[in-house]
């Protein structure tokens, strides 16, 4: 199969709907298993941090929520670019589907960070580079959602959102390196791709579980939102009508 056939197929809402339907049960099962298992592991089995005590257990949701909130944004930016360049309708639907999920995860990252900060730093909030740039990420997500609401015309909304999303993507590397570039209360990353991680393996393993669980949850929710959007937008097509109402009930064409 050539790359263009693949691309064309992926761009077809009908094919995407059918293909994603087969993935849903696996994504659902695996993400819940990893999230719940990782949470129990991190809450009950891992020893407390020698410095922070038990408050460090918030890491098992704070880090996954933050990482996936950023990953979701990059996915949304890529979808926006694909929509602008190739005018793929499906990419616009994916972009629209991601915004509320990303906003929710960013909200969790900010809230769990604040609650973790209180017993650890002695404050709920500081205007430092990391926290402020994540707050901007939250507003970017809300902006994309508001922009979708503001247009009556779907194509115009998608185009405006794609531009906003792509321009806003500059915030992602800022978030990532903010703890290195500026003096910050927020600690630098403990998990390193190059060199040795500065987190004990016994604490790292449950984090890997909840982190991968959160990525899978994001994929699952993204598919659910996109599928609802497909049904909504393709309501005038025969396949969606057959799918929702059943083939027999429809009667003559």
């Amino acid at each position: 199969m050539s790359i263009w056939t693949t691309f064309h197929k992926w761009g077809s809402p009908r094919w995407f709907y059918q293909f994603s339907g087969r993935l849903l049960p696996y994504l659902a099962g695996l993400s819940l298993l990893l999230l719940i298992g990782g949470a129990v592991w991190g809450l009950a089995l891992v020893p407390a941090d020698y410095k922070q005590g038990n408050s460090f257990r918030i890491i098992y949701i704070h880090v996954p929520a933050s990482a996936v909130a950023m990953g979701a944004y990059m996915t949304m930016a890529i979808a926006g670019a694909i929509h602008l360049i190739w005018r793929m309708k499906l990419a616009a639907m994916v972009m629209k589907a991601i915004a509320p999920i990303g906003a929710s995860l960013t909200f969790l990252a900010l809230l769990t960070g604040a609650v973790w900060g209180k017993p650890t730093w002695g404050t709920w909030w500081v205007w430092d580079a990391r926290i402020t740039s994540v707050l901007i990420l939250f507003f970017l997500y809300l902006g994309v959602m508001a922009l979708h609401q503001a247009f009556d015309n779907r194509d115009a909304a998608a185009k405006a959102c794609a531009v906003l999303v792509i321009v806003g993507a500059v915030n992602i590397p800022i978030i990532y390196w903010s703890v290195e570039w500026w003096y910050s209360l927020h600690q630098p990353a403990s998990i390193r791709f190059i060199g040795e991680s500065t987190i004990h393996p016994s604490m790292l393993r449950p984090l890997m579980a909840t982190l991968s669980g959160m990525y899978l949850f994001f994929a699952w929710a993204m598919l659910l939102f996109t599928r609802a959007e497909i049904l909504d937008r393709e309501r005038n097509t025969r396949w969606v009508q057959d799918l929702v109402c059943g083939v027999q009930e429809q009667g003559v064409k």
Partner: peptide, 27 residues
């Protein structure tokens, strides 16, 4: 949790509510 219980349980509780809320909204 040696006094950290309210912080930790609040975070896990809110996360469960938000993730559940996303599934509800999708439905």
């Amino acid at each position: 949790m040696d006094g950290h219980g309210p912080y930790v349980w609040f975070c896990y509780g809110v996360t469960a509510v938000v993730l559940g809320g996303l599934l509800w909204e999708a439905r």
